[in-house]
Design a protein around this nucleic acid. Structure first.
Length: 435
RNA sequence: GGGGGCGUAGCUCAGCUGGUUAGAGCGCUGCCCUGUCACGGCAGAGGUCGCGGGUUCGAGUCCCGUCGCUCCCGCCA
């Protein structure tokens, strides 16, 4: 028995075929029975006349429940009466592969948290499926671009013996007779690849953050996209790569799914023009102070409201949805970010904002061993546990820099969703470990 | 972690200043309906009002605690 996909039925009029999928709807009438079957390619109407007395097939159709997994064999017929594509399948054989219990615990309009409880049912909806079709295209396009640019793919370890940045957000796990930590970032390892002479690397992999954060854009485990590039002159080279690369990825997604995304989520997607606008953090705060309604926080960083306001400002002035914010103060950046020679209170770093949220963070890294050590000490970093990392810079390390970001933040903005949980296959948060 | 809001039927929600048998829509069950397509009609089942304590003659409603959800902030990607 060959399975025919519902999308292919139009080419098989008059033929006897077998479709396999889920019962989407059931209309069991006195003389006619209609079953709408759904597979991953679409919906199809299955029809059966009722006999007197009811045939075995009639009884089987009557006993169906919504969302049961079924295999239906019948003849494809064109019929103008059918609103669903003018096609139907005249039922000859019906097999229930796995019945669904009569009452479903969630519906399309259930609260997100409840939909996650029953994620496998939630994900059966075509619009949810589109999210993961897009995710697949995003990763494919990224790799395509990287590969053309000579990047090497990394799979760095997720067990670590020490923190890669600060200790606060690390998950501690038992590792035989001692403690280990789950990697919060592949940062140290992609820098090791620079010292190893790999030149340009990327990694798409899981990272773990023990933040008790309850927001629409945080989770405790997420897929991080990381890039690191050797032989750069400054963080500008990193930004120049990132914008070309992102623009390509968005162009591909727009080309392949733009219409579906707009239809399903109402979100418009076009490839952004390169270069993206750049503004230093100091200038950004100055501009916000000038133009603004709301007081700008005195802190060293932009708060979420500041990010939204800045994005709006850039969109208004440059017609651009992206904005690089550069030159963050040394105080708010990790010890390994390279500092400006003319002003060591500022780092050669950047954040990338898209449609009001922080998408990526990047920087040129400090590759000079003595300078790196001095910065670690100045920041009060305990260098004992990370000596292996510092060693990477003792035998010839190229100047380098890179960036990283959460894949779901990109997807969320791309699809006009308001929560990373919506675009995460299975969300992990402080209170969520199942399913 | 701090602040606001919320928790009532399988789902989404209503329930006014405390007052007798706690409601609606959808779903579910049964019956009816000559092709439905958001099918339609009739009938019915279904709730220890998140949990624990308190105030009161009386608590879904007020108070305290607790758990969970949600939004904003902090932290970040």
């Amino acid at each position: 028995m060959t399975r025919t996909l519902i999308a292919e039925l139009g080419e098989k009029i008059g033929e006897r075929v077998t479709i396999r999928g889920w019962v989407h709807a059931l209309r069991d009438q006195k003389r006619m029975q209609f079953v709408i079957v759904r597979d991953e390619t679409g919906l199809a109407q299955v029809v059966l006349e009722k006999h007197e007395p009811a045939s075995e097939e009639n009884e089987a159709v009557s006993a169906l429940t919504a969302e049961s997994a079924v295999t239906v064999t019948g003849t494809v017929a064109a019929d103008e009466r059918v609103k669903l594509g003018g096609l139907e399948l005249r039922l000859e054989e019906l097999a229930v592969d796995s019945p669904a219990e009569p009452e479903l615990p969630v519906t399309a309009d259930s609260a997100l948290d409840k939909r996650i409880d029953w994620r496998y049912l939630d994900l059966r909806r075509p619009d949810r499926r589109l999210i993961f079709e897009v995710q697949t295209t995003v990763e494919f396009a990224m790799r395509e671009f990287w590969r053309k640019d000579g990047f090497i793919e990394l799979h760095s370890p997720k067990f670590m013996g020490s923190a890669s940045e600060s200790g606060a957000e690390l998950f501690k796990v038992q590792y035989f007779d001692r403690d280990a930590y789950l990697a919060q970032s592949p940062q140290f390892y992609k820098q090791m690849a620079m010292a190893a002479g790999f030149g340009r690397v990327f990694e798409i992999g899981p990272v773990f953050r023990a933040n008790p954060s309850f927001t629409s854009r945080h989770d405790t485990e997420f897929t991080s996209v990381d890039v690191e590039i050797s032989w750069i002159d400054s963080h500008e080279d990193v930004m120049a790569f990132e914008e070309r690369w992102l623009s390509y990825v968005l162009a591909e997604v727009s080309r392949q799914h733009g219409e579906a995304i707009e239809e399903t989520f109402g979100a418009q997607l076009t490839a952004p023009a390169v270069p993206f606008p750049r503004i230093t953090l100091a200038q950004a705060k100055e501009r916000l102070r000038e133009s603004s309604q709301e007081p700008v926080a005195a802190a060293h960083d932009l708060d979420p409201a500041g990010e939204r306001a800045l994005s709006a400002l850039v969109l208004e002035e440059h017609g651009h949805e992206f904005a690089f914010v550069t030159d963050y103060p040394t105080a708010v950046r990790p010890f390994y970010h390279m500092r400006h020679e003319h002003d060591p209170t500022l780092t050669r770093s950047f954040d990338l904002l898209w449609r009001g949220i922080e998408l990526t963070t990047g920087a040129q890294r400090e590759h000079r061993y003595a300078q790196l050590l001095a910065q670690a000490h100045e920041k009060g970093v305990d260098v004992g546990p990370i000596q292996y990392y510092l060693d990477f810079f003792r035998h010839g390390a190229p100047p380098h820099g890179g960036f990283g970001f959460g894949l779901t933040r990109l997807l969320m903005q791309m699809l006009g969703q308001d929560n990373v949980r919506e675009v995460t296959f299975l969300y992990r948060g402080p209170h969520r470990l199942a399913p």
